[in-house]
């Protein structure tokens, strides 16, 4: 087999437009899923540290469920199964009238999957603080809510910044799974170009480099944030 190189395919229409649209969808899916993952994940993570058995059990059940089923299968369940299981009016609305069904399915599926991982990081970040801080907060008369709000969460937030960076990068990468339900994000578009032009290497190179650049930008940005919120006197992360 011989391969005919033609890098110009990347800058010719419509393929450049395809790639840019793909990048756009990648950012839109990853961004929205990340917001959902943070909101749900931090809540679940906090639940797992509360002095309340029911709350902890619920948190554990959530994490174990979403962590032990492949993301691809979770997307299929949200996309193909859920509308059938819901009451007919809602199910039909999802199937017929929900705008951008692939997009919202990808956001919800990816967001709730990532939430389980964010929850684990949040829990670890809170538990790493040690019981003494919680005791000191309680001893000074702060309520449980106040202890979390003013002491535990601000410290935990700094603890979890590095692991959350890599979770965010995971969301960007995992957004590629949206192509399996028909949302052509960056990876999907490069695959599309390959099918249309047989210039897969060029298309894949473009997509791959875009991911590398995205990753680098995120890492640099978060390092800056880490430095900004570093606690004076405590050694910065190596």
């Amino acid at each position: 087999m011989t391969y005919r190189w033609d890098w110009s395919v990347l800058v010719s229409e419509p393929y450049l437009g395809w790639l840019l649209a793909g990048l756009g969808w990648t950012l839109l899916v990853a961004g929205a899923a990340w917001v959902l993952a943070l909101a749900v994940g931090v809540t679940i993570g906090v639940l797992r540290t509360l002095p309340n058995r029911a709350a902890r059990t619920f948190g554990t059940a959530y994490v174990e469920t979403f962590r032990n089923i492949p993301l691809l299968l979770q997307l299929f369940v949200w996309y193909f199964v859920l509308p059938e299981l819901l009451p007919a009016p809602i199910g039909n609305w999802i199937k017929r009238d929900l705008p951008l069904p692939e997009y919202w399915t990808a956001v919800i599926g990816l967001g709730l999957f990532t939430a389980a991982r964010v929850a684990e990081q949040t829990r670890a970040g809170i538990q790493a603080i040690g019981r003494g801080q919680a005791m000191a907060a309680a001893a000074s008369g702060l309520t449980l809510t106040q202890s979390y709000r003013y002491i535990l969460l601000p410290i935990a937030a700094r603890n979890v910044l590095p692991p959350l960076t890599s979770e965010f990068l995971n969301v960007v990468k995992n957004s590629s799974l949206a192509l399996t339900i028909g949302l052509l994000e960056l990876t999907g578009q490069s695959r599309q170009i390959e099918s249309a032009t047989f210039h897969g290497i060029e298309a894949f190179t473009a997509a791959t480099l875009t991911y590398v650049v995205l990753t680098t930008v995120v890492i640099v940005a978060l390092r800056a944030i880490e430095r900004l919120v570093a606690i004076p006197g405590l050694m910065a992360r190596a």
Binding site: Q133, A136, Y150, P154, I155, R158
Partner: peptide
């Protein structure tokens, strides 16, 4: 007052 101070580091 605690053995390990437990000042809030942040």
């Amino acid at each position: 007052v605690f053995q390990h101070f437990e000042l809030y580091p942040h």
